[in-house]
C-alpha cells in the first residue's frame, strides 16, 4: 500500500487498482470547521482534474478535484452525517471516495510523503 499526494492537498491510498482519496490534514486546517461535504455519485467516471467533491466550511465552499482518472466505486457516506470527521481525522476515517484507477501511469505525477511535506513546509 502506497500513499501519494497532490499539490492541491489530496491524498491517495493505492491498493491494487483502487485509489482511496481524501484531503490532507494541512487542507482541513486551512479550511476550518467543515459543515458539509458533497460526494460524487457511485458509478461516475471522473477525469483527472475534474471537480469531484465539494467541502464547505462556515465561510466558503472548496472543490476537491479528481487527482487521477477513474470510476467512482464507493463514497464515504459517514461524511454526510458527520462532516466534522474531516477536521478530526482527515487522513483516516474522513476518506471521500474510492476510484477504480484507469491509468496507473498518472500516479507517476504525484508526490510521495517526503515531497508533500516539503511542499507544505
Amino acid at each position: 500500500m502506497t500513499t501519494l499526494y497532490t499539490s492541491d492537498h489530496e491524498w491517495l491510498r493505492i491498493e491494487g487498482d483502487v485509489a482511496t482519496i481524501g484531503i490532507t490534514d494541512y487542507a482541513q486546517s486551512q479550511l476550518g470547521d467543515v459543515v458539509f461535504v458533497e460526494l460524487p455519485k457511485v458509478g461516475r467516471s471522473l477525469k483527472k482534474a475534474e471537480a469531484a467533491a465539494v467541502v464547505e466550511s462556515v465561510k466558503a465552499a472548496s472543490d476537491v478535484y479528481a487527482p487521477i482518472t477513474g470510476e467512482v466505486i464507493e463514497v464515504n457516506e459517514a461524511l454526510a452525517a458527520e462532516p466534522a470527521l474531516v477536521n478530526s481525522d482527515a487522513g483516516g476515517k474522513a476518506w471521500f471516495f474510492k476510484l477504480k484507477i484507469s491509468d496507473k501511469g498518472e500516479l507517476g505525477g504525484l508526490m510521495d510523503e517526503a515531497a508533500y511535506a516539503a511542499h507544505t513546509a
Binding site: 476550518g32 470547521d33 459543515v35 466550511s57 462556515v58 465561510k59
Partner: peptide
C-alpha cells in the same frame, strides 16, 4: 482578522 486560532465555528 477573519478568524483567530479557535476558528469561525467556535468563535460564533
Amino acid at each position: 482578522p477573519v478568524q483567530y486560532t479557535a476558528g469561525v465555528l467556535k468563535e460564533h
